[in-house]
């Protein structure tokens, strides 16, 4: 999986994957991302931007 990988095109990506991402962000970054923001997520990079790119530097 690369920065450019489009999550929504992965076979495994479904409604429960969104829950896993929410859980991961809560656990690792202590952040809550509003549900509607997930509609704009496409690539791994866009997800990193949503979490805050400063967290990955």
């Amino acid at each position: 999986m690369k920065g450019k990988t489009n999550l929504k095109e992965l076979e495994e990506y479904d409604s429960l994957s969104v829950l896993s991402i929410i859980a991961m962000i809560d656990e690792k970054f202590g952040k809550k991302i509003p549900g509607q923001n997930f509609q704009s997520i496409t690539t791994v990079k866009s997800l990193m931007e949503l979490i805050g790119i400063e967290n990955f530097e």
Binding site: L19, I22, I33, G35
Partner: peptide
């Protein structure tokens, strides 16, 4: 049901 929002609510 807005699953992600419900999950956010329960986490809180």
């Amino acid at each position: 049901m807005n699953g992600p929002e419900i999950f956010n609510f329960t986490i809180k």
